[in-house]
């Protein structure tokens, strides 16, 4: 058998091997190939022709794969971490979907973010996929998968009873953060009345309730974080929902009593009164939904605590 073909094959394998073990492995593979070729030549009673030599090398395997089997790391993310990686990736992509959904909604309402450099949804999804995969590949390599996948049975959420889906919680969390950013002035909306020669502003009553609303927003975000991180703490989540709903209803009850909710400047006649009425109706519905939510959670809490079957919607 000509050494040229073997030399070229072994060089291709060697290029993919770590330098410190390359010579040793290549020497061993050379002996294996030569022994195999000699055994075939002995059987045939003549030297191997080119096609037979090529066939021998093809049977030996693709150089990249042959060298790859010597690598200590044979997979990027192993079977122990794979389900955790997949769950983390799905959760990250859901967050991206909700964030961009919210941004599209804000865009339709004429809003804009005051920060530049927001990626396109596709770039964000690709970036997130890469980042999550890199983190898990590093955990696979340097971390302890058994420790990462450790869990506590007592943290499992109850099997029965009506609970909010994780999608609902994430959506409310994202909208809660965007609302807070807008409320404290980090997210700006274009003036919608400008198209009609009007200028819309919140009435002074909102300033009086500014910090109450910041507080409510933080409680809402916190309760959603608790609901996401500790799905087993059903009672705590229900209590938080009741308290924040009552807090929200109380704040809006205070606001709605003001004579003006919006300040509309411009040459229109009935428009300011109509806009103010619309806002008042909107707040009224919001107060009712807060009260209804608190009552529903209270009702469920009562049934759960008395051990009766939880009510279902």
């Amino acid at each position: 058998m000509t050494n040229d073909l073997i030399d070229r094959y072994l060089a291709a394998v060697g290029r993919e091997l770590p330098p410190q073990t390359r010579a040793d492995i290549v020497a061993e593979l050379r002996d294996e190939l030569m022994s195999g070729a000699e055994a075939r030549e002995e059987r045939l009673g003549r030297p191997l022709n080119i096609a037979e030599q090529e066939e021998l090398l093809v049977e030996f395997g693709n150089p990249l794969l042959v060298a790859g089997r010597y690598r200590k790391v044979q997979h990027l993310i192993g079977p122990a971490l794979y389900p955790v990686w997949w769950a983390a990736l799905r959760a990250s992509l859901v967050v991206i979907g909700v964030v961009y959904g919210a941004l599209v909604l804000i865009g339709l309402m004429g809003g804009r973010l005051s920060v530049d450099g927001i990626m396109s949804p596709l770039s964000a999804a690709v970036f997130m996929t890469g980042a999550v995969t890199l983190v898990f590949a590093a955990l696979e390599r340097f971390g302890n998968p058994a420790r990462i996948t450790r869990w506590k049975p007592d943290r499992l959420p109850p099997a029965e009873g009506k609970r909010r889906s994780r999608f609902d919680i994430v959506t409310e969390l994202v909208f809660g953060v965007l609302f807070l950013l807008w409320w404290v002035g980090l997210l700006h909306f274009r003036d919608q009345g400008a198209a009609f020669d009007e200028r819309l502003e919140l009435a002074p009553v909102w300033d009086r309730w500014h910090w109450w609303i910041v507080g409510y927003s933080l409680v809402e975000i916190g309760s959603n974080v608790v609901a996401l991180a500790r799905p087993d703490r059903v009672q705590l989540s229900r209590w938080l929902m009741i308290w924040r709903s009552l807090l929200g209803a109380g704040i809006l009850l205070g606001v709605i009593q003001a004579s003006h909710l919006l300040v509309v400047s411009g040459p229109s006649g009935k428009a300011p009164a109509l806009l103010d009425l619309g806002m008042r109706l909107f707040l009224g519905v919001l107060i009712l939904s807060f009260v209804a939510r608190a009552a529903t959670e209270g009702w469920r809490l009562y049934h759960e605590e008395t051990g009766e079957a939880a009510p279902r919607r």
């Binding site: 040793d24 492995i25 020497a27 002996d31 294996e32 022994s35 195999g36 794969l65 089997r69």
Partner: peptide, 30 residues
Amino acid sequence: EGALYPMLRRLEDQGLLCSEWRVEERRNKR
């Protein structure tokens, strides 16, 4: 071969095998 040689190397790294290079049949063999 593709499975055998990496396995031998792994078992040697784990201390389960010993190896040495010697010349036999006019070729260096491990």
